[in-house]
Design a protein around this nucleic acid. Structure first.
Lengths: 352, 352
DNA sequence: ATTAGCACTCGACCCGAATGAGTGCTAATC
DNA sequence: GATTAGCACTCATTCGGGTCGAGTGCTAAT
């Protein structure tokens, strides 16, 4: 992950050291850091004056900036980006090793995910989010209609990965057992083994034709089943520790924290992040992504960073886990904890 | 709801008028209200001095207090309580009439409830909460085991009110169709029509005995089914508009808002409120409850008021809907909107 | 019983001085 | 030529003090 130190682009080694010093210091204190602090902080023994010159250069290059004339410096998005891309592998690993998150095996995937989010949130002091896995590429494994009472037919659908969907269908007139049996057979022979996205409108109309005479009643039932199948858009996103955001004054004081939490409630922005992360991962990139400030579209998130990872439970069940924090989040810690969590998840689902 | 004016306890008519004036004014402005303001605000033409004397009395009696020496007065919990109990029916009705909340009929109860919460939150600018209905008194209506693959058996359970529960049961050795059929029959004959709380440990062991030889395998399946049935504790509570709390400075500034939102995340406190509301309602009291400040156990809620109502969708499906706001919430509006929402819910589920 | 009047309290707000962290620039030094 | 010491300057923060105004309680007059 970390490139060779010589190769590090436009910055000579000393500038890098200073940049790192600025960032590390700012991550800890949350306050602009000045030349004098650095002249002590680093091993390279230089006077504050020299550091000042270098810092002026770094500012010109866009890695740091001053919130107001003659105050200390703060990393820019570009600065953070550089840090995250090139400068953190060692520490991260160290921490990750120590983390020992324990997820209890739960019956429902949903519960496991919620638990994971909670773990992340409490361990990092940031906000955690998890998405339920997408299923539209999964194959239909089991489909069954049953009569529950005179007016209700229950459709139960199971797809790969043992995701269960239910739909209660209200029918006007009673359906006799025989018809249900036939319908079951029909649906199963035609749909079983297909992926959910393959079950489209064309296929449905075809099915209706095959079904024969009882058009009104039966076609409505088929429609309902198709609905239930297509309702794979029940993508859920859970957050945990939303209020952790309030622990960081740079967000709280400016009122941005409220905006962020509002964004969480709407979920649409979260969906963007989730799908971005998934497609990055599709492209075979790294297993973890980091989005910093303006790299995300939503204005509310411009003062946040997000660390995401894609979990893969087999059977094409993939979803996203994320950590949302202030830009000055402890990236090592966040990514380390995340990695360790992913390992846990893997173990639980491989062994099972 | 409103008692006769003459009967109003220790307060004479004038004191009541002044108290009302204080409360109304404080609800609007959020700031301590002084004697001079009232002397204009009310129709009874009295000088500020007289009002001052009366207010001193009201303070002694515990209805209002001053946040610091010689500033205006603010209602105490007792003051609000008095107001809510005796003094608001007319206005409330007026507003309620005007409200026109429209809930779209959705397939899943869950969705309807979420929608209801959202409506409440956006209409009142407070935080809304809804609980899913409790089901332990509901009767089992349908139970079916099906083989999904060699190692998995799916249990589907439907209770009155068409609440569906699923459980995927992993079995070590394959179960043949015949055994499943028998098991289905056994379970149905013994459990069908019973309420969920009637299905206890004794009954389960009885079932196991009846099942005969295949003890290990079968008994584990029966256990799993019993688990699923007893998992009626999947009481869910949804909140909506949590961040609305931040609109009220008296909560935001003191940092109490964060505490409150934290309380929401943990849900245990919300459960207390929900069950309190349900049992109040069991006792045949009013259809709406108001909890003011210290009337709730959780310290985080001591600066809030909560308006709750119990919805009843028939078949014993009852749950709670609530509005959480600052103590100086607009009770008329909150209760009015709530009432109108309940009406909507009723209509949707009666007509269906 | 009501009110006018007065002294008093106390939070909110504004202002100016002091502080101190930090900068940029220049001239001296290694 | 790179480094550093030194100096003037900027600007956010803090703190004390003065003023303002809303509001009270009490007393004496009506």
């Amino acid at each position: 992950m970390a490139k060779e130190p010589e190769k590090i682009s436009e910055l000579d080694e000393r500038k890098v050291k200073i940049l790192v010093a600025v960032i590390r210091n700012y991550l800890e204190t949350g306050e602009p850091v000045g030349s004098r602090t650095i002249s002590k902080y680093t091993d390279l023994s230089l006077s504050s004056a020299t550091i000042r010159n270098e810092m002026a250069d770094l500012e010109e290059m866009g890695y740091i900036f001053q919130p107001h004339t003659s105050s200390g410096r703060i990393p820019t998005d570009k600065g953070y980006r550089f840090y995250v891309d090139n400068l953190m592998s060692e520490k991260e690993r160290e921490i990750q090793e120590k983390e020992d998150l324990i997820i209890e095996k739960a019956d429902k995937l949903e519960e496991v995910l919620k638990q994971a989010a909670k773990l992340l949130a409490t361990n990092t002091n940031y906000t955690a989010l998890v998405s339920t896995p997408e299923t539209h590429r999964n194959k239909l494994k089991f489909l069954q209609l049953s009569k529950v009472d005179e007016n209700s037919i229950l459709a139960v659908i199971v797809v790969e990965g043992n995701i269960i969907k239910n739909k209660m269908i209200q029918v006007g007139e009673e359906m006799d057992d025989d018809t249900i049996l036939k319908l079951n057979l029909l649906l199963n022979t035609h749909l079983n083994g297909l992926s959910l996205e393959q079950i489209n409108l064309g296929l449905i109309t075809l099915l209706k034709e095959r079904a024969g005479i009882h058009t009104e009643l039966i076609s409505s039932v088929i429609d309902a089943v198709a609905d239930a199948i297509r309702a794979d858009e029940d993508l859920e996103i859970y957050t945990s520790g939303a209020t952790n955001i309030f622990k960081y004054p740079e967000l709280t004081d400016s009122g941005k924290a409220t905006d962020i939490i509002n964004t969480f409630e709407n979920k649409e922005e979260l969906e963007k992040i989730v799908s971005a992360s998934l497609s990055e991962n599709d492209a075979g990139r790294n297993e973890m992504q980091v989005y910093i400030g303006k790299e995300m579209s939503s204005p509310a998130m411009h003062d946040c960073s997000v660390v995401t990872a894609t979990y893969d439970l087999g059977d094409g069940m993939r979803g996203t886990i994320g950590i949302v924090g202030p830009k000055r989040m402890n990236y090592e810690k966040a990514m380390g904890t995340m990695k360790s969590l992913m390992k846990q998840l893997d173990e639980i689902y491989k062994k099972k």
